[in-house]
């Protein structure tokens, strides 16, 4: 009984993996691909791994560790990628209508230029 529940849980998780793959192909730029990829793989891997743990209770402890690890680290890597992508937003043609981060960068760059201290503001392209 447990094995059947686990197998169906894994099936739902695998559907979210498929969804992240479709999202990576359909979305127009790197930020939106990240939106689809990070969220769908997080829930997908939670369900897929817990499903495996339900099918084979010996593995349950390790799959729980893996799930906690993925939930903690997946947003971190997506955040690092988003910061990197923001530096290339003009190259990759990302359309963002209010871009508060670019405005803040311009403001600090202006302040540094007015200051005349010669220090370059970080991450200005």
């Amino acid at each position: 009984m447990m094995a059947i529940i686990g197998a169906f849980t894994s099936l739902v998780g695998a559907l979210f993996f498929l969804l992240s793959g479709i999202g990576l192909i359909r979305m127009p730029d790197a930020f939106n691909r990240m939106q689809a990829g990070t969220k769908a793989t997080t829930l997908g891997s939670i369900l897929f791994l817990i499903g495996i743990g339900l099918q084979e209770p010996d593995y349950l402890g390790r799959t729980i560790i893996l799930v906690v690890f993925i939930v903690l680290t997946n947003p971190v890597s997506s955040n690092a990628l988003a910061r990197a992508a923001h530096g290339y937003r003009k190259h990759i043609g990302a359309k963002m209508v209010p871009d508060a981060l670019a405005e803040a960068n311009e403001k600090t760059a202006d302040a540094a230029a007015k200051d005349g201290s010669g220090k370059e503001a970080a991450h200005v392209d």
Partner: peptide, 15 residues
């Protein structure tokens, strides 16, 4: 959003 045929997105960065 991914499966919608018209892809209803309107991205931006807010503070």
């Amino acid at each position: 959003r991914v499966l919608h045929p018209k892809l209803p997105i309107d991205p931006g960065i807010v503070r």
